[in-house]
């Protein structure tokens, strides 16, 4: 049981990969706490372990040792199926390359996570429409991903991440593939989701301007937390 107040709490979190005979340790004995409702950016050079940490928090990768609590859930102790069910309800993920399903419309892409919930078609429609309205893409509901710009695709991906109203949003370089204008719009959206809707956001980024939107920037290097700095993002 998580006995601290932090929403995300890692203790001696270690991840080890094996590549042939070679042992790779992207995270080593990491201790970390993130408060509920905070907007945190993870920064660091390539190979510092920030994406690995994000994957572990997202429950799409398994912990080698140590503990990882998110709310009341000990992710290190959960099975693959339990993690899948947990992801469906507790976390929304935004990918750098949007990862929309090309054969589904914007509406259907956003609706996908709701298919994992027990709700009527009408309830789903209301949620999808609200999510698309939040990302200002109500008029693009019937468009397929190939008919959208990169910025629009990423906003659809954000709508997909928030539609099930998960308390935790994880973003992996969400502005990495976008032009400045679109990136600003995406970051504005994330800030609003944190500020207005109280979502806890963990964002991996290389971009200092993007990191500036977070309240706290965690700097990782060689799998360990180097320092935590207060960023410019306002609560």
């Amino acid at each position: 049981m998580n006995d601290g107040n932090a929403f995300i709490r890692c203790s001696k979190l270690t991840k080890v990969y094996h590549k042939g005979d070679q042992e790779i340790v992207p995270l080593r004995d990491l201790d970390l706490e993130i408060e509920r409702g905070s907007f945190v950016s993870l920064m660091g050079p390539s190979g510092s372990g920030k994406t690995t940490l994000l994957n572990l928090i997202a429950g799409i990768d398994s912990v080698t040792s140590g503990s990882l609590w998110i709310g009341d859930n000990n992710l290190a102790a959960m099975s693959r199926n339990q993690l899948a069910a947990w992801r469906a309800h507790e976390v929304g993920i935004i990918f750098q390359s949007y990862n929309l399903v090309p054969v589904l419309t914007a509406y259907e892409n956003v609706e996908l996570p709701l298919l994992l919930h027990s709700m009527t078609r009408r309830e789903r429609a209301q949620r999808v429409e609200a999510a698309l309205a939040t990302v200002l893409l109500s008029d693009r509901a019937d468009h397929f991903p190939r008919q959208l710009s990169g910025g629009q695709e990423q906003r659809v991906a954000i709508a997909r991440a928030i539609v099930a109203e998960p308390p935790l949003l994880l973003a992996d370089e969400p502005t990495g593939d976008l032009d400045r204008e679109s990136a600003t719009m995406v970051l504005d959206l994330l800030s609003e989701l944190n500020r207005v809707h109280g979502r806890t956001i963990v964002m991996v980024t290389h971009d200092p301007a993007a990191a500036h939107r977070a309240q706290i920037a965690l700097h990782l290097d060689k799998g360990q937390l180097l320092r935590a700095t207060s960023a410019g993002g306002a609560h």
Partner: peptide, 14 residues
């Protein structure tokens, strides 16, 4: 493969 990974990340079971 990536799309299948995305669906898994969203919470769809194998």
């Amino acid at each position: 493969v990536r799309e299948v990974g995305t669906l898994q990340a969203l919470g769809f079971s194998r």
